[in-house]
Design a binder for these strands. Structure first.
Lengths: 152, 152
DNA sequence: ATTAAATGGTTGCATTTGCAACGGGAACGC
DNA sequence: GCGTTCCCGTTGCAAATGCAACCATTTAAT
């Protein structure tokens, strides 16, 4: 049993936590001098929307691993800043479907250089295969802990 | 240039963010029914202290990637709960050195089973070599982004 | 059909957080 | 010596967050 290595600083638990905040901070700071009024919380939501629009707030809450109330408030400011719109769902009036505005779509390409710059600095010296494995492992963990009832 | 894959949900930036919070949430919830009055923020600080005691608050702030004010308040509650003590540094009276109490040290072994349980669920189906590579990549990124002036 | 249970979004509240300002202490200048 | 600058910890403030309560709507039960 070499399994005592759960709490040490090189364990996945705490590495993901710290690397995650670190990367987000760097990208945000790199892009900060621009005129976009982006708050830290907004990035994760926008990333989701760049991949799939028309989702419910609840969907965004789940994939962002945040409370639905938190998402609701973040969307209010994103809507106020004209990045997204809330469209009532005609088939189920409880839902509001979230869509990007033109401004919200354009932001992806504008932020790209900053994200790329940070990632290049972060991964300099690493080979692409290891990075791919890291992504695979993290994706696996994400799925393992979010997919509701499977194991045992 | 296959470099468009920075914002997608499978990029390291957002995987680390979400997996990090997810793992921390799971461990905390798994251990929640216990009597320890632990708050989410406390875990990261304790992990550091389990590895090296007698550090300054500033050191904890840097390694936890949090504001020094945030760390100061977290330590106040940890101190109040009798997990740590602040010892004034006699050689430099600006510093306060943080040490674990007996209760704080004992907590590591008590939390271990919960952390292990969550990690086993999270990494079931992954091979140890890939997990090790993932840790290596994340450690590399952590160092690359925290070591002040290096490349370019 | 009517009632009960479940779901989605909003809001109040308390906690957590980062930022900035402050004060005490140390290091370096003169 | 004295003053300037820097570093560390603390605290006020505003923003972000989770939780829970609430309302509207849908679905299930009878």
């Amino acid at each position: 049993m070499k399994k005592d290595a759960l709490f040490p600083n090189d364990s996945i638990v705490f590495l993901t936590n710290r690397v995650g905040r670190l990367l987000a901070n760097h990208i945000r700071q790199a892009a900060e001098h621009e005129s976009w009024g982006l708050q830290p919380q907004h990035m994760g939501i926008l990333v989701d929307l760049w991949q799939r629009e028309g989702v419910r707030q609840q969907d965004l809450a789940v994939s962002n691993i945040k409370d639905k109330g938190t998402i609701a408030r973040a969307l209010s400011s994103l809507e106020e800043a004209n990045y997204v719109v809330r469209i009532p769902d005609s088939t189920d009036k409880r839902n509001k479907l979230i869509y990007l505005t033109h401004k919200g779509k354009a932001l992806q390409a504008q932020l790209q250089p900053y994200a790329q710059m940070v990632m290049e600095q972060a991964t300099a010296g690493l080979n692409d295969k290891d990075i791919a494995i890291c992504q695979k492992v993290l994706s696996h963990i994400l799925k393992a802990l979010t997919t509701p009832g499977q194991e045992q």
